[in-house]
Write a protein that binds this DNA or RNA. Structure first.
Lengths: 346, 346
DNA sequence: TTGTATGCGTTATCAA
DNA sequence: TTGATAACGCATACAA
């Protein structure tokens, strides 16, 4: 077992406070004699002393931990986000604890509960996002919190996300510019901030171009690849099928790719594909995917900055940051000449 | 702020012990009158009571937390592994704290330090792996520990990993069977368990086939994609270049892909590629990669099982589990007719 | 320059 | 059926 300040105190003959001061107070520079400093440090080392952060946190009412909650840690977008967050937090001397909610709101609730029980100093949450009563509660308990990626317009909370509407506009407008009009949208989890805003952008782009919205071309219900796979299979049975598919997330696009391959549908010759999110591998896919990239590093940076500010000034005005997405054009979209469209019907 | 047992005790008029028993002892069933139970629970709710795990952990000398350390959380292999570990640990009622060491042994050291200071009940470590004095220390301090993916043969510690030698044998033998003899190997981080064993398998396969080992065909120094990119560029300048490349990890393969694309080298027509690791996207790459798959779910399951056993019986004999990898043949390897080989020289 | 005493929130032991 | 109290390990106000 690990030794304590008391052990060291007894061994050296000094008091616990003196030992504590040499070991954890070197900043404030109490006037401690060189000699006692050395003996204490030496025996601390001999005894394998290791501070107990539980005790320390209890005493200080501060843990130096930030809780981070994401819907799916294995999703490339979120794992990259976590990595960036970790780097930013470390800079400020904070540790962090991640929870993966598996897109399940009840797990999200218990994750928050768990984190608060650990007395984290702050929270960064990419919420599942279908409901926010539990989030509201955190805010009311005035524990520092910033939402990331998934926000709630209805809530006055610090948040940073990409401009999803604009991202969808970029994607769909690109498709329209290339001559597509029958453009399908495979959604992520409905009710989710990310999903609803992306859907909104999709609809708006069509509307702006004077293209009627066909509800048959909108499907899907979560951000996983299986959803992309199933929905794409379904879309391919339509008559005529869409000439292009826009997917709400990277994993969905992977599923779409699989369905197309299975049906020997060539992308982009037979059908075009654009996706939200742009993980490292999109450019190596077959074909390289045209995709909407989110500035992940920047998101993490802003989120942590907002959190620090909130921890410092609890009553500052809340800020909602909206970052610019980017359209990365690659090889998954075909140019359509107007008549081609009907040739695809069967 | 959150209320405490004391607050509830004062408000209800009962003692702290009674309140504590009502709120956290429902198992042991003290004989507490229905009436006090109800009032206590009600006011606990009213006051927004939330247990303080710091205090509890301090008192109990047990935190219910498991520390997990990985070299790169954004690497698809590790993010999948973490997800699996999380699921397994939750089953046992444990929370977990992840650290990302960025393949940096000094960060690994401080991660371990940090985790021990938090008094985690156990540790699962995918070590950077070049040195193990710090790991040895944990073992000596007799805190439950299991190594995963990256192990130390020299250390008597519970560990689970895939049979890397066998994986490499699968990969290289496949290449040899297809007629390749000039097979390059792009390494991950040298000194690492995963790397050294994979290298060993590579060499053994060549040796068994009577193919001389050409040190010029072995390069690379970490598991990131930039390494794959740079090394591949280098390999392409060789005269003659290799007819096949075997990469030690998925990210390295991605880099190799990029270099080939940049040089207009077609895979597999101009050069074949096989990689260790098989994340979800390999089959959608261009071309779909022939790859060595690790049984991630099983690894997580075994690791957690070993950890639980160790926590229960600290002095049981240590176990080293070696799991079977799988060769997934896809489209990144060309069959070579013997003469073709020389035609590639320039 | 160092020591004493108190409290952070819990649980466990013992007593009532 | 409930309460008083000590202890977990640490940091700090106050004393010396």
């Amino acid at each position: 077992m690990s030794s304590t300040l008391k052990d060291i105190a007894e061994k050296t003959g000094f008091s616990i406070s003196t030992v504590s001061r040499v070991l954890h107070d070197n900043s404030k520079k109490y006037k401690i004699s060189e000699k006692t400093r050395v003996t204490v440090q030496q025996t601390a080392k001999d005894l394998g002393y290791r501070i107990n952060t539980l005790a320390r946190g209890l005493r200080l009412q501060k843990t130096n931990e930030i809780g981070v909650i994401v819907p799916d840690i294995a999703n490339p977008f979120f794992s990259a986000l976590i990595k960036s967050l970790a780097g930013e937090l470390r800079k400020g001397g904070y540790n962090f604890i991640v929870y993966d909610t598996d897109e399940d709101i009840s797990i999200e609730r218990s994750a928050i509960k768990s984190l608060l029980e650990k007395r984290v100093d702050g929270l960064i949450i990419a919420s599942v996002g279908q409901d926010f009563s539990h989030i509201q509660k955190i805010r009311d308990a005035s524990i520092p919190l910033v939402m990331i990626d998934r926000c709630f317009d209805a809530l006055d909370i610090d948040s940073v996300s990409v401009d999803n509407v604009k991202g969808s506009l970029f994607a769909v407008n690109h498709l329209i510019k290339e001559g597509h009009t029958r453009i399908a949208f495979i959604q992520g989890l409905p009710g989710t901030y990310a999903n609803e805003t992306r859907l909104q952008g999709y609809k708006q782009a069509l509307h702006d171009a004077g293209i009627a919205i066909d509800e048959h071309l909108i499907g899907g219900d979560d951000f996983r690849s299986m959803n992309g796979y199933l929905e794409t299979k379904h879309l391919l049975t339509l008559s005529p099928p869409p000439t292009a598919i826009f997917t709400a997330g990277d994993l969905i696009a992977l599923g779409a790719l699989e369905a197309c391959r299975e049906h020997c549908i060539n992308i982009p010759a037979d059908i075009s594909l654009v996706t939200f999110d742009d993980p490292v591998f999109t450019s190596y896919l077959s074909p390289a995917l045209t995709a909407i990239e989110q500035p992940i590093g920047k998101m993490a940076e802003m989120a942590v900055a907002l959190l620090y500010r909130r921890m410092k000034n609890p009553d500052d005005e809340r800020t909602k940051v909206l970052l610019e997405p980017t359209l990365n054009v690659r090889n998954s979209v075909a140019r359509l000449v107007p008549q081609t469209n009907t040739m695809h019907s069967n």
